Amino acid sequence: MYAADEVVCVRDPWLPDRLLRTERDALMPLLRRTPEARFELRTACPGWTARQVLAHCAAALVRIVEGRLEEGVFLPEANAADVAEREPWKLGRVLDELERGFSEAGPVIAATEDGTLDAVALGEWVHAGDVREAFGEPGAYGGASLDLALPLLSVTSRRRDTPALVAVVPDRPEPLALGGPVEGRAPARYRGDAATLVRLYSGRPLVGTRYELTGATEQELLIYR
């Protein structure tokens, strides 16, 4: 039986790098062959097209690579400024910057002793799902990277102080432990597929999904606010 006080948050510093590189190899060929007009499709991110989401992703990763991490760098206003800066760029330049970020940010993230940038790598993977969904691609928040993303989600959910939760997911040999213990409160329970679990924690639309959640609200599970 899982108990809230048994959760151990163990960081694998190279997990974000493996996630980013795996996602690079899966996503970039899709982006390179997609007609440019499709990048103007709207995504689950309010107000942002697929192109703008990718511009944000590229800017965030290259900021990490180049050490440009001044205070407030990932706040909404700064993100919007990064996207606006890239509006005049040709799409190919945005994709080149994104591929560079996927390739080079991982070692920098690994070198951060406190793991504060790990959530950025997870966010990049979630945003890749946003773009896949906008393009109508199957498995938007799944695919080859899912086995790397779920452990990172577990660690990030604990760092972001979400309540302890036990997730029973089909095809997983054991339940997933997310979040951290709250005194006097039993762990919440989730039963459903992994992609929907990702949607819950990242605040993505849940229309058309099926899941059971007891002991917590959807709002309490959000790791990106």
Rank of each mutant, 00 (worst) to 15 (best):
L213R: 03
P205R: 13
R199P: 04
A78Y: 05
A111M: 06
P16R: 11
P163K: 06
F74C: 00
L69P: 00
P46L: 14
A58E: 07
E23L: 12
S157N: 05
A111N: 14
R33P: 00
V73I: 00
P13R: 03
R33V: 13
W14V: 03
P173I: 01
D17L: 02
P46R: 11
E99I: 01
A3G: 08
A110I: 01
V73A: 11
A186D: 10
C45K: 02
L122Y: 07
P170C: 09
C45N: 01
G184R: 07
G143D: 05
V155C: 05
V7K: 12
R42G: 06
C9R: 11
T209A: 15
A110R: 02
L30I: 15
L54D: 08
L61D: 07
G184D: 08
R11I: 03
G184K: 10
D118A: 07
G72A: 09
G47C: 09
G136E: 03
P107N: 03
G129C: 03
V166F: 07
A144C: 01
R93Q: 14
G123I: 01
A121I: 07
G47Q: 10
Y190E: 10
P29G: 04
R225M: 00
V182D: 02
K90M: 10
L95W: 06
F39Q: 12
R100I: 04
E87G: 00
E6T: 13
R172M: 14
A50M: 03
T22Y: 00
D12Y: 01
G180A: 15
E124A: 09
D82M: 11
R24E: 11
T196W: 08
